[in-house]
């Protein structure tokens, strides 16, 4: 299982803050995004958004970031703190 977290505007778009999914076929962030986009509807944002960021186990990760069973993967818009 992979623990997924969604933040800020993405969380509001999806209507959910997080979930656990069985994504054994996904070895990289890019595949996880495709897996989520395949749900259709609001989840299309994972296919269409160029600005969406990802973190794997609480460290920023690119599309080629590796993911494995037990990881915590977060998706969110570009950060705007400070």
């Amino acid at each position: 299982m992979i623990k997924l977290l969604y933040f800020a505007s993405l969380r509001e778009t999806l209507g959910v803050a997080g979930e656990e999914i069985d994504a054994s076929g996904c070895t990289h962030v890019q595949e996880l995004r495709a897996h989520l986009a395949a749900r259709g509807g609001v989840w299309n944002v994972f296919a269409t958004s160029k600005s969406l960021r990802a973190a794997v186990n609480q460290a920023m990760a690119g599309a080629d970031g590796a993911v494995k069973d037990g990881d915590e993967v977060a998706f969110f818009p570009p950060v705007t703190g400070g």
Partner: peptide, 19 residues
């Protein structure tokens, strides 16, 4: 911090709120 720390601001205005 502005580009790497995971914070997100949402503003409240008279016409509603916006990220």
């Amino acid at each position: 911090l502005k580009t790497r720390a995971p914070f997100w601001k949402k503003e409240e205005t008279a016409t509603g709120s916006r990220w």
